[in-house]
């Protein structure tokens, strides 16, 4: 029976969470996943997490030049999240427009690969929400593929309801949590 090797990612997440401003320095030391995750948290941390609606993609308190092909570059050029209606996996008009920009950005940055996270709000069962998150991530993947981005540059993961972006239990927060997040790998 193979024993598991431990991965240092959650520690990096915790540290990033404690001090979002310092997470940039952690990024250089982490693996590919650690890097993108920490950046994602950093952008959450830059927002007051109780206000739904104001959370779409902001580079927050980062200063300095934006690296082409980086997460911040994606956030600045387009957005790194697509929102969904309740219990829906359909890419709406706004989402489609956004993904058109993302596809354009990916063509301009051919080295970039994206991990697409699918998320659900807390108003469903855990198992169902895993499947729903997968459907959302897949819908984004399929849409980008239909725009000419090869499948090899796009992978998906579902977080179900395990990683809400906004904690509070109210409809505004739920709509912010029904999302797909695009992470530069």
């Amino acid at each position: 029976m193979p024993r598991l090797s431990l991965i240092a990612l959650p520690l990096a997440l915790l540290l990033a969470a404690c001090n979002p401003m310092n997470s940039a320095s952690l990024n250089g030391e982490g693996g590919a996943n650690g890097t993108s995750q920490s950046q994602e948290l950093a952008s959450y941390g830059a927002q007051p997490a109780v206000m739904p609606g104001g959370l779409t993609a902001s580079a927050g308190g980062f200063d300095g030049p934006v690296q082409p092909g980086s997460q911040r570059d994606l956030q600045r050029f387009a957005s790194d999240r697509v929102l969904f209606d309740t219990d829906s996996v359909r890419i709406n008009q706004q989402g489609y427009a956004l993904l058109t920009q993302v596809a354009q950005w990916m063509r301009a940055n051919p080295q970039v690969r994206l991990l697409i996270e699918g998320h659900a709000d807390e108003r469903g069962t855990r198992e169902y929400n895993f499947a729903l998150g997968d459907q959302r991530a897949s819908a984004v993947q399929q849409t980008l593929m239909s725009m000419g981005i090869p499948a090899t540059r796009l992978s998906t993961v579902s977080y179900g309801k395990e990683r809400p972006e906004v904690a509070i239990s109210q409809p505004g927060a739920w709509s912010a949590n029904r999302r797909a997040v695009l992470l530069v790998m």
């Binding site: 996996v89 198992e127 895993f130 499947a131 997968d134 459907q135 897949s138 819908a139 399929q142 579902s158």
Partner: peptide, 9 residues
């Protein structure tokens, strides 16, 4: 178990 792949579980 369930396996989700390409939007189908």
């Amino acid at each position: 178990l369930s396996i989700s792949l390409n939007g189908n579980t």
